[in-house]
């Protein structure tokens, strides 16, 4: 398995990278962690003429907190996210999700930016980012723009990124006290894409009422899906088994999974319901410091 020949560019600045993208148009691909792209190139499913490697551009790998927002540089590796104390402090969901992404070697290379920019509903971060209500920063020749995560995923392997834009940063609002988050996916074996995956972040008050909630679903829809009706079923309400059941039911109704080797459509819908239930409970437990 060997890729088709291509030209390799390794720009040293973002401006150079964008200029190369503009020059080569659709013939160019951005190489980040490469663990989605290079396998596709080896299988010759992807045959770019130009590969623009952004790994040499300084200043794209960081995880920091600024004014109530956690900012993650697009080149941050999954392993860095897995072990970040800052993320552990605010978002236990990252420890849940990264452990389930591929395997340790892949996590040493795979980047969070690539995971999102690939636009694959089977990837795990899209659902997490939806639950966390993240914002994606896209940089092009005219500067940077913010794209709310809900507007980022367009279709099968397509995102709101323009051809000459590069995903450079992810911004996540630091949640208030009383917030918890959790992710789980069912997988056929460790490192597999999800049979179904559910990400939840919620905030509860002292009475157990849900003050804020985000629920994202992995690999049960052609594009990454936010379970809006499920969120509504819990927002402003007490987190009890009745409301959770309703949220679970809505998510299973609103997703649109396809049957494959992982299971039937019916199974996946049922698993979405099970996981919504479990992840809401787990997030709520974490929110309440249990």
């Amino acid at each position: 398995m060997i890729p088709q020949s291509f030209q390799y560019e390794s720009p040293g600045t973002m401006a150079d990278a964008i200029a190369l993208l503009e020059k080569h148009g659709d013939e160019a691909k951005i190489l980040s962690g490469g663990h989605s792209l290079i396998p596709m190139m080896k299988l010759r499913f992807a045959t770019p003429e130009y590969l623009i490697d952004i790994n040499g551009i300084p200043g794209l790998s960081y995880i920091r907190e600024e004014k109530g927002t956690v900012k993650i540089g697009a080149l941050s590796r999954e392993a860095e996210i897995e072990h970040s104390d800052l993320l552990k402090k605010h978002f236990p969901i990252f420890a849940d999700v990264t452990k389930l992404i591929a395997d340790p070697q892949v996590r040493n290379r795979g980047t969070i930016g690539g995971n999102l920019a690939h636009g694959d509903a089977a990837n795990d971060h899209p659902a997490v980012m939806m639950a966390l209500q993240a914002t994606v920063i896209a940089t092009g020749s005219g500067g940077s723009r913010s794209i709310p995560i809900d507007e980022f995923f367009f279709g099968f392997y397509t995102t709101a990124l323009k051809q000459n834009e590069i995903l450079t940063e992810i911004q996540i609002p630091v949640p208030p006290a009383g917030t918890g988050s959790a992710y789980h996916k069912l997988e056929r074996k460790v490192g597999d894409y999800a049979t179904a995956g559910v990400a939840v972040q919620l905030t509860v008050d002292g009475k157990g009422v849900c003050k804020a909630i985000g629920i994202g679903l992995t690999n049960v829809n052609p594009i990454p899906l936010r379970a809006v009706r499920s969120e509504q079923a819990l927002l402003g309400k007490v987190i009890n088994s009745e409301n959770i059941a309703l949220a679970a039911q809505f998510a299973s109704e609103d997703c649109n999974p396809s049957a494959d080797l992982r299971g039937s459509e019916e199974y996946k819908r049922a698993m979405v319901a099970v996981l919504v239930k479990r992840m809401v409970l787990k997030a709520a437990e974490r929110a309440m410091g249990k």
Binding site: L186, R188, T195, R262, G263, S264, E266, Y267, A270
Partner: peptide, 11 residues
């Protein structure tokens, strides 16, 4: 015997 098969049988 996969989880899916087990679930289907229980279903």
């Amino acid at each position: 015997v996969t989880p899916f098969k087990v679930w289907k049988a229980l279903k």
